[in-house]
């Protein structure tokens, strides 16, 4: 502490402390201790103001918070998310696509059989049968839409997986080294939005109006 800022009694306090240390540790030379203290103080660039002391305390607190977070992340075993949960979820979703595709193929095959039967009929029955098979073909389009929606969910899960891995690498045990940011996906498909939720989607009549506005 600079001479000009020393409060009365502070030198006395230091002398008293040195005397106490000497009393407890007779082998310790007070001059040597004082020299060590002076050396330590000399490494500090000037005095710490109240603000700087407060900032230092905040930084120390921040360090403790980070250490606690790292310990908590380690305790959470977040690797389970990337190693087990997300692969399991994506496998299940892939299985849904495969099962619905197989079921849709079976429906279509039977529908095609009905069409062949209908071709040998005439009159109202034939017309009704064709009407029914047309409705079935239309309904089978669900498989394409659900497949695209599930693909979007799988993409979201993989993005979450990558983020979790990044957090674990950065803040987990042994982490802390600066790592380049995750590579950004090349935006080659900026218009591939996939099916929209009803609130955000245009229906066929909206699209017809939009197209007509170009004419």
């Amino acid at each position: 502490m600079a001479e000009r800022n020393r409060r009365p009694g502070q030198a006395f306090t230091l002398a008293t402390r040195l005397a106490e240390i000497h009393a407890r540790h007779p082998a310790a030379d007070p001059d040597m201790v004082a020299e060590v203290v002076r050396s330590v103080l000399a490494t500090m660039n000037g005095d710490l103001s109240a603000k700087e002391t407060s900032l230092l305390a905040e930084v120390e607190e921040l360090g403790r918070t980070i250490a606690t977070a790292k310990a908590e992340i380690a305790a959470l075993e977040v690797d389970v998310i990337t190693v087990s949960h997300i692969p399991f979820a994506t496998d299940e979703l892939d299985a849904i696509i495969a099962h619905t595709a197989a079921a849709t193929d079976a429906i279509l095959e039977n529908c095609e059989t009905l069409d062949r039967v209908a071709a040998g009929l005439t009159g109202p029955d034939a017309a009704q049968l064709q009407e029914v098979t047309t409705r079935i073909y239309e309904a089978c389009g669900f498989q394409d839409i659900t497949g695209q929606r599930i693909t979007k969910v799988v993409g979201a899960l993989k993005a979450i997986e990558a983020k979790v891995e990044h957090i674990v690498t950065t803040f987990g045990p042994g982490g802390g080294e600066a790592r380049p940011g995750l590579p950004q996906a090349v935006d080659t498909a900026s218009l591939l939005n996939g099916p929209q939720l009803p609130a955000a989607a245009m229906d066929q009549s909206d699209i017809d109006k939009l197209l007509a506005s170009f004419d």
Binding site: T104, D105, L108, D115, Y137, G141, D144, G147
Partner: peptide
């Protein structure tokens, strides 16, 4: 790219 969709469109065209 969905073969099921190709099959559906083919059948609807046939109709």
């Amino acid at each position: 790219d969905y073969k099921t969709m190709l099959r559906i469109i083919r059948n609807l065209l046939k109709q």
